[in-house]
């Protein structure tokens, strides 16, 4: 079966959405990535990625949870779909296979 391709940043975003569970929307995802990875990401980048992932069918969204701070505007909450989960699993599996096939001395060097 053809494996889904996920970019590195996409993978990060997907994972973050999964971590945040029910609370994943633009703002939280951005902040979470910043905190967890320590890298400064622009909101626009995150937003665009979320949109792209939704288009690919890895994420699903629903609207809700307006607050006064947002000027009464609703949030778009994201959840990982079954296809998304499978994609994540695939990526992980590929990684693990790759790690496993490393020769011991090289592994030693990297993890050292």
């Amino acid at each position: 079966m053809k494996r889904a391709f996920l970019g590195e940043f996409e993978e990060v975003v997907m994972l973050t959405v999964a971590i945040l569970d029910e609370e994943a929307y633009g703002v939280t995802v951005t902040q979470e990535i910043e905190q967890k990875t320590g890298r400064s990401v622009g909101f626009s980048t995150v937003h665009t990625t979320l949109q792209r992932l939704e288009e690919k069918g890895f994420l699903a969204s629903r609207m809700g949870g307006a607050t006064a701070e947002r000027g009464g505007r609703r949030k778009r909450f994201f959840t990982v779909t079954a296809a998304g989960r499978k994609a994540l699993r695939d990526v992980k599996q590929v990684r693990e296979e790759l790690w496993r096939s490393l020769p011991p001395q090289t592994l030693q060097l990297i993890t050292g």
Binding site: G26, R74, K75
Partner: peptide
């Protein structure tokens, strides 16, 4: 809607 909201919150 959500983009404007998100940006405002951020």
């Amino acid at each position: 809607e959500d983009v404007q909201g998100d940006l405002l919150e951020l």
